[in-house]
Design a protein around this nucleic acid. Sequence first.
DNA 1: AATGAATGAGAGTTCATTCAT
DNA 2: TATGAATGAACTCTCATTCAT
Lengths: 204, 204, 204, 204
Amino acid sequence: MPGRTANKYEEHRQAAIRAAAAVFVEKGFHGSSTKDIAEKLGIKQGSLYYYFDSKEQALSEVCLFGIRDYVSHMAEIAASEEPFEAKLEATVASHLHAYRERSEALKVYNDERLYLPAAKRRRLKALGTKYRRELESIFAAAMEQGVVRDSVDPHFAAQAVIGLCNAFGDLIVRNREPDLGETIRRCMDLLINGFVGNYKEDQT
Amino acid sequence: MPGRTANKYEEHRQAAIRAAAAVFVEKGFHGSSTKDIAEKLGIKQGSLYYYFDSKEQALSEVCLFGIRDYVSHMAEIAASEEPFEAKLEATVASHLHAYRERSEALKVYNDERLYLPAAKRRRLKALGTKYRRELESIFAAAMEQGVVRDSVDPHFAAQAVIGLCNAFGDLIVRNREPDLGETIRRCMDLLINGFVGNYKEDQT
Amino acid sequence: MPGRTANKYEEHRQAAIRAAAAVFVEKGFHGSSTKDIAEKLGIKQGSLYYYFDSKEQALSEVCLFGIRDYVSHMAEIAASEEPFEAKLEATVASHLHAYRERSEALKVYNDERLYLPAAKRRRLKALGTKYRRELESIFAAAMEQGVVRDSVDPHFAAQAVIGLCNAFGDLIVRNREPDLGETIRRCMDLLINGFVGNYKEDQT
Amino acid sequence: MPGRTANKYEEHRQAAIRAAAAVFVEKGFHGSSTKDIAEKLGIKQGSLYYYFDSKEQALSEVCLFGIRDYVSHMAEIAASEEPFEAKLEATVASHLHAYRERSEALKVYNDERLYLPAAKRRRLKALGTKYRRELESIFAAAMEQGVVRDSVDPHFAAQAVIGLCNAFGDLIVRNREPDLGETIRRCMDLLINGFVGNYKEDQT
DNA sequence: AATGAATGAGAGTTCATTCAT
DNA sequence: TATGAATGAACTCTCATTCAT
């Protein structure tokens, strides 16, 4: 049975990453001690270093774990042939589901990545930028087709979608907001129609 | 001239709070040392304790400083006789201007308040809740007047406004986003009209 | 009384350097703990860092302290107008007295300097090389005057003098060899009657 | 074939001792980790304990390995019927060749033996003392025969020979000093023409 | 004969805090 | 009003060692 031990190690390592994510979410990177993480894992503090070279590397892995799938999911959405609204909804749903599932890691990515050394941060930032760019291009395409008003700025729009999702993601992670579907629907309603709808032309 | 010295002290104290805010924003509460704060103030580490009883108290003061005016401003807005859209715009503008001006403190409130002990956190949370409630009631009133679609949930709406403002607040604090007026206008456009506008009836 | 506090600090710092030297001599750099040093000083471990930035810096200071005066003393000897034998004796005496007085530091320089990071080591090495060079030039000059046989290699000779002095320096530091004058005399006898002596032609 | 396996084990064990010696020379005993040694051997850290009971025992074996042959070689020299100068040259040559060949172990003995517990250290010291005694007796015998001036102290002389050889041994180990024969010749020249030489009466 | 995994003790270092001055 | 000096607790990280396999 070759690869067995390697797999075992990798499993434990994944568990360590998840434990780190959970602790970092609760106490922040600097507020968390390696002892906290080890305890959550059920091992002794020093043993953590069998899985990580340093606390910082743990953060780095958590962040990567937090966005990897979520970014690649966005790539699929952007490449699909769906109409604008479906793509937008897929984005919002994917973003919020990510919070539900690998919840902590994504939040850690959002809140703590800036404590990583510049080099690692840049690599993560590239992923984040990729995500935003793809979302922007979805908006840009929709504007060309006249589906989105052309007074809208794609850059702003993407930022707004991400910000909105993160805001509700926070609530999901911390308050365990129950009805995800409801939240997705309301976010879509806001993004598509605004709160007022049938909008009036003039406002300052 | 006892009042004089008291004032002097209070001035220095305010400076200390602002210095703490600046440091906390940059490095996070747990990532900041009292030495960092003292250095930003131009005094020695031990001297900080003339102004704060503890590092934690410093955080508490920063948070309070960060939301006090901003909450009381919201009270004024809510109490005013303006129509819905004007109130909403005043809210967004106030929120984003707060980031511009006493920028750091508000961000610290958002990001670091959960490191305060439960007691202090509750008092702050009350202020935050007051803010959200007032915003909710603005929405509720607008719905009663038919200005806002009644498919909208006031709780969700308030959360969304706050989340959106915080998201752009982040960018303001960290990237020094230049055109505040533009950002306010775009946020209003989104909140009022959505990205698609003249909205279609059916969406999942 | 200006400069008082600065002096006080500097005094304590010197004491710390000497304490470090004593501990390093006994246990070696890696075998010594900062706790050991602090205890020798009569302060608590963490307080050491008021005087040193790191254990390594302590080593660096000890090494510098160990050779500085001793190198500058050699410069004086080399520059003096004394005849060869007087210079050589002054060198040996200076070297051995250095072991007696700031004994530990010099031995630490000899034994532990290679644990310093390359940069610091190079700076120290420059001093050591300066010492050897000056000793070499003393020999070279003596050879030109015919005081030293010209079959002697100045480089080897300098190395030998230094090696011999260090060997007896070791004994001085560890065994507290009592009669320094006697040791100096014997070393001179060996060295002079070797390098100068009406030596016999034949040996292998 | 039990002898076979025992031999195999003993071979590996010797390799382990040599690996330990190499690492100890480079980083010192306390600066070396068992992982370092294992890596040099090409095995994993835990596997080292198949060959040593403890890191300290490894040091002990290295030291023993470092002086054993070299001490027994001295016994042969002392027992031989050669004249004084031949014996001295054999001593110097043996000492310096030892550095060349099993170089590291001998240097480890010199530099690190004092980190051994008192008991083991005493046993090694006995060997070292034996070495020095035999060298002393060579000098004493030569003095009786009038080959060495009787102003020479045998104890000092032995110490000086050992110190000199160690000093150049250091250079051999670290700098890979190329011409061993040359170094031996120069050392002999220094020693002979010092101790025997038609020396001049007056020196301070 | 060798390894993977874990451990516990201890290392160097940082830091909030205190207090005499 | 502010500082220099010190402290003790906590932290990250290393490492000799053990042991089941």
